[in-house]
Amino acid sequence: MGKNVNFTLLTMLYLFIYIVASPNSTIDKNALLAFKAQITSNPNKILAKNWSQETPFCNWIWIGITCGKRHQRVRGLNLANMGLGGIIAKEIDGLSFLRSLIISENSFYGFFPDEMGNLSQLQEIEM
Results as ranks from 00 to 15, higher is better:
Asn4Leu: 14
Ile103Leu: 12
Leu95Ala: 02
Leu33Trp: 07
Met12Asn: 05
Leu9Ser: 05
Asn24Arg: 10
Arg70Cys: 07
Val74Arg: 01
Ser100Cys: 04
Ala37Glu: 15
Ile103Pro: 05
Ser52Ala: 09
Met116Tyr: 11
Asn118Pro: 00
Ser104Cys: 10
Pro113His: 10
Glu105Ala: 10
Tyr14Met: 04
Asp28Phe: 01
Glu91Ile: 03
Glu124Ile: 15
Ile88Leu: 15
Phe111Thr: 12
Trp60Asp: 12
Asn118Gln: 12
Glu91Asn: 12
Met127Leu: 15
Asn118Ile: 06
Leu47Glu: 07
Ile102Pro: 00
Asn78Cys: 04
Thr66His: 04
Leu77Lys: 06
Leu95Phe: 09
Gly76Cys: 03
Asn24Val: 00
Lys36Cys: 06
Met1Glu: 11
Asn24Phe: 11
Ile125Tyr: 14
Gly94Val: 02
Trp51Thr: 07
His71Ala: 03
Ser41Gly: 08
Pro23Val: 01
Asn81Cys: 07
Lys45Gln: 14
His71Cys: 01
Glu115His: 04
Asn42Phe: 11
Asp93Cys: 13
Leu101Thr: 05
Glu54Ala: 15
Thr40Phe: 05
Cys67Phe: 02
Leu77Tyr: 07
Gly94His: 03
Ala80Tyr: 01
Asn24Ser: 08
Pro23Cys: 00
Leu47Thr: 05
Thr66Val: 07
Lys3Tyr: 11
Leu77Gly: 06
Ile61Phe: 08
Asn6Phe: 11
Ala80Asn: 14
Met1Lys: 10
Arg75Lys: 14
Glu91Ser: 09
Leu101Cys: 08
Met116Gly: 13
Met12Val: 10
Pro43Ala: 08
Ile65Asn: 01
Asn81Gln: 04
Phe108Lys: 07
Arg99Gln: 15
Lys69Thr: 15
Phe111Ile: 05
Leu32Trp: 06
Thr11Met: 00
Asp93Gly: 02
Gln38Ile: 05
Gln38Pro: 00
Ile88Lys: 04
Phe7Gln: 09
Ala34Ser: 15
Tyr18Leu: 08
Glu115Asn: 11
Phe97Cys: 02
Ser96Cys: 09
Gln123Met: 13
Glu115Ala: 14
Thr55Val: 14
Gly110Met: 08
Trp62Ser: 01
Thr8His: 02
Leu122Asp: 11
Ala21Met: 04
Gly85Met: 09
Ser22His: 05
Phe35Asp: 04
Ala89Lys: 08
Met82Gln: 14
Glu124Pro: 02
Lys36Ile: 14
Pro113Glu: 09
Tyr109Val: 12
Gln123Arg: 15
Asn30Lys: 10
Pro43Arg: 10
Ile125Gln: 11
Tyr109Gln: 12
Leu122Ile: 14
Ile17Gly: 00
